[in-house]
Computed example of a mutant assay.
Amino acid sequence: MAGRGALHRSVVAPAGRHSASVIFLHGSGDTGQGVRAWINQVLNQDLSFQHIKVIYPTAPIRPYTPMRGSLSTVWFDRYKISNDCPEHIETIDSMCQELTSLIDDEVKNGIRKNRILLGGFSMGGGMAMHLAYRYHQDVAGVFALSSFLNKNSAVYQALMKNERELPELFQCHGTVDELVLHSWGEETNRMLKSLGIPTTFVSIPHLYHELNKSELEKLQAWILKKLPEKSNDE
């Protein structure tokens, strides 16, 4: 429904000079503004930085099979919410093309690819892994909160043929997540690590399928580590 490059987005501008960007993808059925508001509620402030712009795009509306074909703001369709079924690769690939236009916009604004982080919550984290590890292996890093990849993911297939240095992955997952099982997140991390990706996996005790303060503070610290105010080659 949204054409290429036409994704609605909510933006947290940097306080100072813009030298890096984060693209944060919401979970299924949410919006960019929605996940930004949720983060604000958990942290009592925006996820904001002196030099980093944070962009929260909203997924186009499409029929979503796990909701019996009802329309929802989802990055891609799924046959079911499980790690043990094929991926809906057609919708994933078309969305990767649309999201590439967001990355291109940042590059046009003078932000190098190695100063851009991609990530998200739940389905947004899965989308970010496809986007980075299949199409944009030169970004600064990837984060995935309460996310997973299917067992035979196209991401794994792409990485089997890869020989270049890959962006680091930062993953957090609640131990009692009832929607996206902790074991699915762990298995995703283990597979990506075996395929040459430097990974961090943080288990958050007693956390369901949600965000919490300690997780977001860890993410904030990791973002600053990957995107320091002065990049080495500036």
Rank of each mutant, 00 (worst) to 15 (best):
H18N: 11
N114T: 09
K230Y: 12
Y135W: 10
P66T: 00
G16I: 07
G185A: 00
R164D: 10
Q97P: 06
Q137E: 06
V11C: 04
Q137I: 08
P14D: 04
R134V: 02
E210M: 08
E163D: 09
H209R: 04
Y133Q: 00
C172I: 04
Y156N: 04
V107N: 08
E90V: 01
N114W: 05
L43K: 01
S28R: 13
E215S: 06
P198I: 02
A221I: 09
T73N: 02
A13S: 11
R17F: 11
E106Y: 03
M129K: 12
D138R: 12
L99S: 09
W184M: 03
N114D: 14
D30F: 02
T188L: 02
R115D: 00
I52W: 05
Y56R: 04
R17W: 11
N232W: 08
D233T: 14
Q220V: 05
V107Q: 10
G5V: 03
C172M: 10
L25D: 07
P66F: 00
L25K: 13
M123Q: 15
T175F: 06
W184R: 03
V54D: 00
E229A: 06
F121Q: 14
H136G: 12
E87P: 15
L25R: 09
I111R: 14
Y64I: 03
A6M: 11
V35L: 00
R164S: 13
L7C: 08
A15S: 14
L7H: 14
R115G: 02
N150T: 15
S147Y: 07
N114E: 12
F76Y: 06
N114Y: 08
D138A: 14
C96V: 10
A13Q: 15
L25W: 10
T91Y: 00
V155A: 02
L192D: 08
G141V: 00
Y133V: 01
E90R: 01
S94V: 14
L159S: 06
S214I: 14
F121N: 10
N212S: 07
L216Q: 07
G27K: 12
G29M: 03
I197N: 03
L227A: 12
V180Q: 03
A6F: 08
S21E: 02
T31L: 06
Q97W: 07
P14M: 05
Y64D: 01
M129E: 06
S94R: 08
L25Y: 15
A128E: 02
T91M: 00
V11P: 04
C172N: 05
I103M: 09
V54T: 01
E87S: 09
L169I: 00
Q171N: 06
K108N: 10
C172G: 11
R17E: 15
K108L: 13
S94C: 11
T200H: 15
S194E: 15
R78C: 07
P167C: 08
S203P: 08
G124T: 02
L7D: 13
G120S: 03
G174D: 07
E98K: 15
L211A: 05
I52M: 05
Q97A: 13
Q137D: 04
G3I: 00
T175Y: 05
S153F: 05
N212K: 10
K226W: 07
I223C: 14
P60M: 07
G69C: 08
D30L: 02
R36H: 12
M123S: 06
T73F: 01
I39N: 01
K230W: 12
L207T: 09
D84E: 15
N162V: 03
M67P: 02
L227G: 11
M123Y: 04
S21I: 01
